[in-house]
Write a protein that binds this DNA or RNA. Sequence first.
DNA 1: GCCAACGTTGGC
DNA 2: GCCAACGTTGGC
Length: 168
Amino acid sequence: MGANTENKKTTLNSSSQYWLMKSEPDVFSIQDLKKNKTTLWEGVRNYQARNFMTKEMQVGDLVLFYHSNATPPGVAGLATVSKAAIPDPTQFDKKSEYFDPKATKEKPIWFCVEVKFVSEFPHFVSLEEIRKDAKLSEMMVIQKGSRLSIQPVKAKDFQHLQKLGQQS
DNA sequence: GCCAACGTTGGC
DNA sequence: GCCAACGTTGGC
C-alpha cells in the first residue's frame, strides 16, 4: 500500500453544513425575514455560538429558522447563510442593548453572519412535534437545558425536519 | 410568572 | 484556578 494521506478534516471543511438558529418572533420572525429578504444576525453574545459563525458557517449553509419564546416554539421555515461573518456593528453602538465596552474596531469581539430568506414552512414544526419524533431524538434543541442560540444540525435531521415542514 | 439549566463575573 | 453569586435563556 502507498502512503495513507487521507485527511478527514479537508472533507469536513468543504462540505456544507446545517444549522438551527433561534429568534424570538416578537423581535424578529420568519415573516420579518421574508419581508426583508436578508438580515444580519446581530446580538449573539455567546462564545460558542459566535465560534460557529466565525469558524464553521459557510455561505450556502442551510438554516432551520426557529421561533423561541413563542407560543408554540418551533421551526418556522428555512434560511441560508448569504454572507460570511463580519464584526457585529451593535457592539460599537452605545445606544444598542448589545453594546460591548470592551470591543474596539481594531479588536472586535462579536461577529455576525448575514442570513437570507428561503421559505416559510407550510407546516410549522413545533418543539412538541420534534420531541415526539423518534427520528429527531438526537437534535440538540430537545436536549435538556440546551439554550445555545445557534446549533449544528445533522444532515439526516435537517432533511427529515424539512420534509415535515413542507407537508401542507 | 416560575424556575431549571447554563454562562459569566469577580473575590479570594 | 476555584467557586459562589448573579444574570440570562426559554419552556412551561
